[in-house]
Amino acid sequence: MHPSFFMLEKELLEHKIVTRLPLFLLVFGLLILGSIVLNTDSISNMSLQFNYQGNDAPDFAQGLSRVIAFGAGAVSLLLSIMYLAKTFRKERQEGSLMFWRSMPVSDLQTHVVKLGFALILIPLICSLLVLSAELLLWFISLTNGQDLISLLGEVSFFGVLLSWLMFMAKMILVSLALLPLACLLLAVSQVSNSPLLVVVVGAYTLKLVSTYVFTFTSLADFIRDISSMPMALLTAQQPLMVFVQVGWLSCLGAYLLGSLCLIVSLLLRK
């Protein structure tokens, strides 16, 4: 098997929160759903409430799917950013850096694996959360009688797969938007012990200085656009439009800066 497989496995062992938080959320959701299903009174109450509000049932199912997808996406984003800020710093602080560097693994491969872990594996794990939550709803709708169907509307297996695929497609875009920031975090975390703070404070300072000292707002706009892009993608109905709104010039600039950060990070690792 390829060395990268073992390196990813090591990251999973080292950062257990990446698997534990989604698992915890799933179990938590399961418990809540279970209590609702068992308590049929509340279901009729809820459907009643929704009826009062004038929403029809199918919308609620779609809305629930959207809430699940947004929640899982936000968890994925949070886990990715936390991981990126922590991984290099942790190795340095605990002293295991010397051991990892004593292995015949190039710095580039280490970076690729860490980026892959943050931007591919973590979203994938969170997509499993989406899949299991959707499957659960579908299963409940199969076993539980009319009450729930009247609440959720028709939930089909095909619909479950579709929302899973939609989630993954969305997360690919989120990861793409996160890539430059990820490189920045990897670079900063090699010199600072609180990289997130440095990046946030740095971004705000840059924004303020460029706006009020140089009255040059494009830089502030650029920082705002790029930093808010992952979150905007998560909430957007049509994610591709977010890229259009930000504009190709800003995107290009972000990727150029990202590659620069990657190069700096590789040099710092030496």
Binding site: M1, P3, F5, F6, M7, E9, K10, L13, E14, E94, G95, S96, L97, M98, F99, S102, M103, P104, V105
Partner: peptide, 23 residues
């Protein structure tokens, strides 16, 4: 060296498995 560089959070079996994968 006299300073331990092995990752403390790993088990012996895990570090052997990792090394077998990358070395």
């Amino acid at each position: 060296s006299d300073v331990n560089v092995l990752p403390e959070w790993m088990t012996v079996a895990q570090i052997l498995r990792y090394t077998s994968g990358v070395h």
